[in-house]
C-alpha cells in the first residue's frame, strides 16, 4: 500500500498486466513519444504522462506509437484483439471518437454477436474526458453515454486512484471490449492504492456514503463532488447515500434501486449533456421500477445542453458544481416529509 496518483495507479495497472501477460500491448499517439525524432525517447509517455516508462521497460514492439490516424489504429487494435493480442489503445481525447467510431461500435462491439458468439475481442480503449481544463468544445466532452448506448461495449469511469487501478486491471483481463474514461482533472489526485494487482468487478456499484435522507448517484469525477456535498450536509442534519456505479455498462441497477428505495429521494449527477445521458437513464430506471417508493421528484444535476465553452467564466458555470448539487439535494430533501 502506498500513496499513488490516479495517473500512477493507471500506469501501474497497465505495467503489472504487461508483466503478467505478454499478449498485452499498448498503442496510441505519443504513447511513448519521440518516435523517429532526434531528441529524447519516451519523451511524453502519453500526452498527460499516463504511459510514461512503459516503453523503456517493454520495448517498442509492445508500446507502439501511432501516427495521428485513429481510424487505422483503433481498428487495428480491434483486429489485433480478435486475433490473439490484448491491446490497450489510447484514444487521446474521447472527443476524437468522431474520426474512428465505426471501428469501435460497428466492428469491435459487434463481432461477438454478429459472428454467433465465436469472436473474443479483449480490447481496451483508454480515453480522456471531462471539462475544467479550458480546453473548449472539442477536448472536454463527457461522451460516455454514447458508448454506453452500444451493446457489446463495457464502459468504466474510475472515480479515484484506487478505482482507476482496479478497473483498469479488470478491463485488461476482461474478454469483451471495454472503454475506460479517465477524467483529466483527476490525474494528480492521490490516495492509498495497494501495490499488488487487483481487479474491481464490473457492474458492482460502490456505495461511498450511507445515509437516510437522499441518494446521490454520481458518475466519474462527479462522485467526488457528491461525497463532498454529503460530508458537508452532515452538519445540516441531512444524511446522504452516495452511489458510484463505477461502470455505466454494465450498470448496477440493483444497488441504485435498493439505495433509492431506502432513502426515497434521488439526485443524479452527471457531467454529460442532459439529453440521453446517465442521469436520464438512472431517472428512468427509478421511475419505472420504484416510482411508488419516491417521496420527492427525482432531480438531475448535469451540464447544460450546449457545447463546452472555452472562457473560464463560462466553463465554470457549465460544469456541475458542489453548490448546484447541494441545492438539488436540499430541494428534494425539503419535499415529501
Amino acid at each position: 500500500m502506498s500513496v499513488k496518483s490516479y495517473r500512477q495507479a493507471l500506469n501501474e495497472a497497465i505495467r503489472q498486466e504487461m508483466e503478467r501477460d505478454e499478449r498485452v500491448i499498448v498503442m496510441g499517439e505519443d504513447i511513448a513519444g519521440g518516435m523517429g525524432a532526434p531528441g529524447e525517447d519516451d519523451a511524453w509517455g502519453g500526452v498527460l504522462g499516463v504511459t510514461k516508462g512503459l516503453m523503456p521497460q517493454f520495448g517498442r514492439e509492445r508500446v507502439l506509437d501511432t501516427p495521428i490516424s485513429e481510424s487505422a489504429f483503433i481498428g487495428c487494435a480491434a483486429g489485433a484483439a480478435a486475433t490473439g493480442l490484448r491491446p490497450v489503445a489510447e484514444l487521446m481525447f474521447v472527443d476524437f471518437m468522431g474520426v474512428c467510431f465505426d471501428q469501435i461500435f460497428n466492428q469491435a462491439a459487434k463481432f461477438r454477436y454478429m459472428f454467433g458468439g465465436k469472436a473474443v475481442t479483449p480490447l481496451v480503449i483508454r480515453t480522456m474526458y471531462g471539462a475544467g481544463f479550458r480546453a473548449a468544445s472539442q477536448h472536454s466532452q463527457c461522451l460516455y453515454p454514447l458508448f454506453t448506448h452500444i451493446p457489446g461495449l463495457k464502459v468504466a469511469l474510475p472515480s479515484n486512484a484506487y478505482e482507476a487501478k482496479g478497473l483498469m486491471t479488470q478491463a485488461i483481463r476482461d474478454d469483451d471490449p471495454v472503454v475506460i474514461f479517465e477524467h483529466k482533472a483527476m490525474y494528480d489526485e492521490e490516495m492509498e492504492v495497494p501495490d499488488e494487482a487487483y481487479g474491481i468487478p464490473f457492474g458492482e456499484a460502490n456505495v461511498t456514503r450511507e445515509g437516510d435522507d437522499v441518494t446521490m448517484v454520481a458518475f466519474g469525477r462527479m462522485v467526488n463532488l457528491a461525497n463532498e456535498v454529503a460530508d458537508s450536509l452532515k452538519g445540516s442534519g441531512i444524511s446522504c447515500t452516495v452511489v458510484d456505479p463505477r461502470t455505466t455498462s454494465p450498470l448496477d441497477e440493483e444497488t441504485i434501486l435498493e439505495t433509492v428505495s431506502e432513502t426515497g429521494r434521488l439526485v443524479v449527477i452527471d457531467e454529460a449533456h442532459p439529453r440521453c445521458n446517465m442521469a436520464t437513464d438512472v431517472s428512468a430506471l427509478v421511475s419505472q421500477e420504484i416510482f411508488s417508493d419516491l417521496k420527492a421528484p427525482v432531480k438531475m444535476v448535469t451540464a447544460p445542453h450546449c457545447p463546452v465553452p472555452f472562457s473560464p467564466a463560462l466553463e465554470d458555470v457549465y460544469i456541475p458544481s458542489t453548490a448546484k448539487i447541494e441545492a438539488a439535494v436540499r430541494e428534494v430533501v425539503g419535499k415529501g416529509h
Binding site: 499478449r23 489485433a80 486475433t83 466492428q107
Partner: peptide, 20 residues
C-alpha cells in the same frame, strides 16, 4: 457491412502475427 471496415482490422491481424 461497412465499406472500408476491413483494412484497419487487417492491420490488427497483421500486428498479432508480427508480435506473436
Amino acid at each position: 457491412g461497412i465499406v472500408g471496415g476491413g483494412p484497419p482490422l487487417i492491420c490488427g491481424a497483421a500486428l498479432t502475427a508480427k508480435t506473436l
